[in-house]
Design a protein around this nucleic acid. Structure first.
Lengths: 239, 239
DNA sequence: GCAAGTGGTCTGGTAAGCGGACCAGCTCAC
DNA sequence: GTGAGCTGGTCCGCTTACCAGACCACTTGC
């Protein structure tokens, strides 16, 4: 059940200035989730400042935040490394954040159930040969990652993002983009469940096959089934 | 066709700090579109500052911007009034903004086609008696406004927003919320077309009727038809 | 051991926003 | 009328976030 909201559309929202270091923190967090393992080194502060087009101070503010929540550990002279994720302790703010979002997870899944099947249908209609081969590469990466016993979180995200791209609708892209932060939570969780990884890969393959032969209805159906699989896992798992 | 985007998901986005007065300007602009007519007075600067929780300086910066594009006219001692919209001139930045977004309009419609039918289905399943009567009130307001020969822009927005509320999915709500700025453009336009207003009201009534008897499939179908109507109008109109 | 790279610290400067005070113009009740 | 109470117009000083650069302390690899 959602939080009670004021009647219909409120005329105004309070305005909040966004802080650069918060944005930076989000992006670094995303990078860690997608591309880095515990023990890996972050790009240097000066490098990040260059890439993100902000000053080093802002990078440092962001890193200090990530350090405080225990995600990262700066070492003078060496670099900033990604810390082991302490999944057990309930004092772990990371796990807590996940739990707090538990209500959101089902809503997110529901949202995906609404949007992704028709999205897959449009991808089937509009995908270019180039986009299809791009997605094929992604699935190969997913297979490789999983064969090494790792969770292919980044690849899973890339695949679904690739479909949004291939749909040719930039509005959807924008939406998916802003929801990425939340999406990755459900994804990370479900991929760690036993036997889930194989099922995910198979689902992706079915979807891509339908897209490849430009069969919109089949793509839609395959996507629906895929997301229902994810849903089943998530709902039947105790947190 | 969307702008060419870099291969799949880019690792980083450049970070931009938002400016409070720009946000304020957006909200005031929205208020004008939704609730005010030319000649109406804006809330006083001090009042707006209180509501939006920003300083009066920021409100003033925003109003200056709206004054520069000719949307609004501050009068010392009286208040700030909404100016007549000069619809004809192609030098009108308002109309230009609409045209520039022309490409977006079809994509937005497509997005709505994806999301709103399943959303209506969920609303049919989850809507409380209170939410339903809320939507009934909105439709009565829409009827009243249209009977006076005016475009019921605010009511149209409220109705669709009400459905999102009744669906009980806060994620969807968040998405709709952030897209509101764009949505209002397609809506404003389509409602001004001859005969469109009646059709819109009828469509809304059918949707609400289905929701009221908790018929998810009928709600979905009615919503799909409603949006296709809108789409037809928009696509067949020369800008 | 030393050069090169890293994070740690500090300083000076800029821009946005805040909060408050005061002025000038309009309106309306008395 | 006229004055009280609104309104927008202007100015000031302060704080915060951010930037740019310099320098230090530490680690590592040659």
């Amino acid at each position: 059940m959602p939080a009670p909201v004021k009647s219909v559309k409120p005329d105004f929202e309070v305005i909040r200035r966004n802080k650069v270091y918060e944005e930076v923190a989000k992006q670094i967090e995303r990078l860690i989730l997608k591309k880095l393992k515990p023990g890996d080194k972050l790009p240097s502060e000066r490098e990040l400042a260059e890439i993100l087009q902000v000053s080093r101070s802002s990078i440092r503010d962001a890193i200090r935040g990530l350090e405080l929540v225990g995600l990262v550990e700066p070492r003078q002279g060496t670099g900033t490394i990604v810390r082991e994720r302490t999944t057990e302790s309930s004092a772990n703010p990371f796990a807590n954040a996940l739990k707090r979002r538990q209500g959101l997870v089902t809503e997110l899944l529901d949202f995906r159930k609404m949007i992704e099947p028709p999205l897959a249908a449009r991808a089937a209609a509009n995908a270019t040969a180039e986009e299809i081969s791009e997605m094929e590469e992604i699935l190969q990466r997913q297979e490789k990652t999983q064969s090494q016993g790792e969770a292919a979180i980044a690849e899973d995200a890339d695949f679904h993002y690739g479909i949004a791209l291939a749909s040719g609708n930039s509005v959807v892209l924008k939406v998916i983009d802003t929801l990425m932060d939340l999406l990755r939570d459900t994804r990370e969780h479900s991929l760690q469940v036993e036997g889930r990884a194989q099922k995910s890969l198979a689902g992706h393959r079915r979807i891509l096959a339908a897209i490849k032969r430009h069969d919109a209805e089949a793509a839609k159906a395959a996507m629906r089934r895929h997301i229902e699989d994810v849903e089943e896992i998530v709902l039947n798992t105790k947190f």
